[in-house]
Design a binder for these strands. Sequence first.
DNA 1: TAGATTGTTAATCGATTAACAATC
DNA 2: TAGATTGTTAATCGATTAACAATC
Lengths: 182, 182
Amino acid sequence: MSDLHIQTVSSYELGLKLDMNPAQIRKDLAYFGEFGRKGIGYDVSYLIEKIKQILKLDRFLKIGLVGAGHLGIAISNYNQYIKENFSIRAIFDTDPQKVGQKIGSAEVFHLDDLQREIEDKGIQMGIITVPAQEAQKVADRLIDAGIRAILNFAPVNLKVPPNVYLRNADLTTELQSLAYYL
Amino acid sequence: MSDLHIQTVSSYELGLKLDMNPAQIRKDLAYFGEFGRKGIGYDVSYLIEKIKQILKLDRFLKIGLVGAGHLGIAISNYNQYIKENFSIRAIFDTDPQKVGQKIGSAEVFHLDDLQREIEDKGIQMGIITVPAQEAQKVADRLIDAGIRAILNFAPVNLKVPPNVYLRNADLTTELQSLAYYL
DNA sequence: TAGATTGTTAATCGATTAACAATC
DNA sequence: TAGATTGTTAATCGATTAACAATC
């Protein structure tokens, strides 16, 4: 039974797995506090918890997605895989045909109800999958509704205030890096 | 007229724009050859051409996309924006309803015709937007057909030989980095 | 206790920046 | 020529690795 459950791991073992120098690993971990025990190593499950904390993966994020087009639908469905830490709680569109439908596990609301649903559902993050020319307007509305983190799929440079974190999911960048390695 | 057309730029000016040290810029550029002229600076249009060459953005890439689902359709349409350096030349799916249709500017072919179309059209790169459980099979077929660069959107770790460059477009990573900054 | 392994200080290495001869 | 600016060598800085006292 002795080695059926690995309880601890040394910086040396981690270094082998991660192809890193053990001293580097010890230094990195020590930066966030004293995790390990001298002569013993690091408690694996405690370490996992700590790393989750450090990477802020120990919380649950509620997402609002704007734009129930092909990309929006794809992401909403994809969402089901990654339920652990994130979930799309509401989808917004202006198309009356789409409003009221369910996509994945979330309902489609009219864009005009954005503020209300974000507040009601405690949504913290926005995903924008509308056409480029609509994206800035949508971003502004999300920000007005209190959203401080936005993932933008529209191929346009959005202007957001400095207290809002914006990330662009840019297909072009991905393609370029592939082109480079070709 | 003298300053209507800026012909050259100094490492100092570039440094201001890019928020980098001028020496760093000179060193980086000099690494790829002698671009600049002493006492003058860098010829702007020549520099742009050179950088495109360095980043391998001076060529045109033909793409084959497998999986005409929501995500595949979204990317095919999106594609119209970025025609400069890339274009999706063929889309593959097994759904007979979709075969023969046009999405964006590309035609949908049956997956069985993958090899033929890739050869006929000189396609160099593959994008995978099929469900996770199909992705490995599709990757294998692309590789068999001679593709050496794949952008994978399926949430699965594909196994590819070392001479194939694989890039995963992972929504989870994007969301996590947003979560971090929240 | 002896062996193992941490956290941290000291040594090494590499990357960034400054300085300068070459030259436009 | 004098001023400007490169490419590159030398100096500086920071990050990585090695070494080791502390201790389980």
